[in-house]
């Protein structure tokens, strides 16, 4: 089976559930301590694209931020795609995710990504109204996933979707 490796960054505001989201899906190799020390932690996840092609995602889980500084920009270098994570119980994290996406596109151009609106299990605290959700669907279309790191809802689907997007781009070039 052929294997292709791709670098994927996981970005978002503080405490939106980036680490928890990828945790159920990845092979852990390093302690979470790295997140608080050097601001990044690497995990890997394998996605079978076809019977004889496997994509190995090298997931760079970057410590929560609302704006990338020099170090984080260096961490983003060379990535094939990214996972934006926001917290459905805090609207500010959605605008933070938009900011980060804008910053990424300014420096890296259009790249495959998925947008995870996390913490769907906390319905009582959910702040995203139907109208806002409609707006998000229009904005991100099929790249939007409402996930729960706690229950694992839609996380695997989101990562599989990102793998597909990356594979398409790698195989067929930017659309």
């Amino acid at each position: 089976m052929n294997q292709v490796n791709s670098k994927v960054c996981v970005v978002g505001d503080f405490a939106v559930g980036k680490t928890s989201t990828v945790e159920r899906f990845v092979n852990n190799h390093f302690s979470d301590k790295y997140l608080t020390t050097i601001g990044v932690k690497v995990d890997t996840a394998e996605v079978d694209l076809t019977q004889d092609l496997k994509l190995k995602l090298i997931l760079w889980d970057i410590a929560g931020t609302t704006e990338f500084k020099h170090v984080e920009m260096a961490y983003l270098r060379g990535m094939s795609g990214y996972i934006l994570v926001a917290d459905g119980t805090r609207l500010t994290t959605i605008s933070a995710a938009r900011e980060l996406k804008t910053q990424i596109e300014a420096t890296h151009g259009e790249l495959p990504f998925v947008f995870l609106l996390n913490k769907s299990d906390l319905q009582h605290a959910w702040e995203v109204s139907d109208r806002q959700r409609e707006k998000l669907v229009n904005e991100f279309s099929s790249e939007l996933f409402v996930t729960s790191a706690k229950t694992g809802d839609h996380v695997a689907g989101a990562i599989a979707r990102l793998a597909e997007l990356i594979a398409e781009r790698e195989l067929f070039g930017p659309q």
Partner: peptide
């Protein structure tokens, strides 16, 4: 693969 990425990060 993870070691390589982490080394690059460090």
């Amino acid at each position: 693969d993870a070691v390589s990425a982490m080394f690059t990060a460090i």
